[in-house]
């Protein structure tokens, strides 16, 4: 059998081949013979009180938020998860990071680097394999200096100097002045905050970055630089799951796109498939295609008319 580790994906699967519920793109690699991240049949439901009933009669019921989600991230690629706000995309990020609310009921399987995970092992991967890049400056402790936060906590004494050196290296690489380390979050500009949050993730040398809406509030130029940084990370062999509501941005940077609609991934395909609506499987994906500015702006309703 051939060694799969070093082969680009096209030696294993042909481009645009369909397997494990998804289509491949040019950069998709199966390092170690497996997907970097694979999520299968993930469902998340919350136990809630029936809000239509009066207070004392309300019964608990399960509310489905994410339903039977399949998605895969290969090493070396950026997968964009595109969907409307409130469709449950952030919960997907939480699920991959093993952060569950106590009233959540989660089912399905998550593999990381070919190994099946459970809630406990996912929690152990946090900051040790999988890192989150959150949306904005609200994810930093408002009362703590930025440098200290990037370096992180809970490390033995001899490691702290190492972390500090690592942080300084990252700051230099991302054009952040050393004085930024002594600033508090409210003193950061939007572009600085974005780079600081990326540095937080890169501090831990992750193999997979989950970026949860990392670009809102940034102007186009800054957003593009953010995406370039992710691309650079992917080219070095990492995987990126980019969660966003911005289909344009997703198509610009991602290798593949997972279309998220009403708590489910309705289509997982290569960016190339967005060249024409005929290549898209699902109605919602086609509606997204039509909504792009360079197309006809037609909504689904007009389509039916």
């Amino acid at each position: 059998m051939t060694d799969l580790n070093s082969l680009p994906h096209s030696d294993v699967h042909t481009e645009a081949e369909f397997h494990h519920h998804h289509m491949h793109a040019q950069n998709s690699q199966h390092k170690h013979g497996a997907h970097l991240l694979q999520v299968e049949h993930l469902s998340i439901a919350f136990e809630m009180y029936d809000e239509t009933k009066p207070y004392f009669q309300a019964q608990q019921r399960m509310v489905d938020v994410i339903h039977d989600v399949n998605i895969a991230v290969h090493a070396g690629e950026i997968v964009a998860v595109v969907g409307a706000s409130g469709s449950g995309k952030s919960l997907l990020a939480d699920a991959i990071l093993g952060i569950y609310e106590p009233n959540a009921q989660v089912s399905g399987t998550i593999w990381f680097d070919g190994e099946e995970q459970n809630a406990q092992s996912l929690a152990q991967l946090r900051g040790k394999g999988i890192s989150l890049v959150p949306q904005g400056v609200a994810s930093l402790d408002p009362l703590m200096r930025v440098g200290k936060q990037v370096e992180g906590f809970g490390f033995p004494r001899h490691k702290r100097a190492e972390r500090k050196a690592g942080r300084q290296e990252l700051f230099a690489r991302y054009d952040l002045d050393e004085s930024v380390a002594r600033m508090y979050p409210h003193q950061l500009s939007g572009g600085m905050a974005r780079r600081v949050l990326l540095c937080c993730a890169l501090m831990d040398n992750p193999r997979l970055i989950v970026a949860d809406e990392p670009t809102p509030g940034l102007d186009l130029q800054l957003a593009e630089r953010a995406l370039d940084d992710f691309r650079e990370f992917a080219q070095e062999g990492g995987g990126v799951m980019l969660i966003t509501h911005d289909i344009e941005l997703a198509l610009r940077v991602a290798d593949r796109v997972a279309v998220f609609y009403e708590g489910s991934v309705v289509e997982e395909t290569s960016v190339a498939a967005f060249a024409s609506p005929d290549l898209l499987e699902h109605d919602f994906s086609r509606a997204l295609w039509h909504a792009l500015p360079e197309h006809d702006f037609r909504s689904k309703r007009q389509d039916n008319a």
């Binding site: 990071l97 952060i99 946090r126 609200a138 402790d141 408002p142 906590f153």
Partner: peptide, 17 residues
């Protein structure tokens, strides 16, 4: 429930840490 605690946990700290 704040974003900064969620992020701290996502970076590997336990809830109480």
């Amino acid at each position: 429930e704040s974003d900064y605690i969620r992020f701290a946990r996502a970076r590997g700290l336990s809830r109480s840490k």
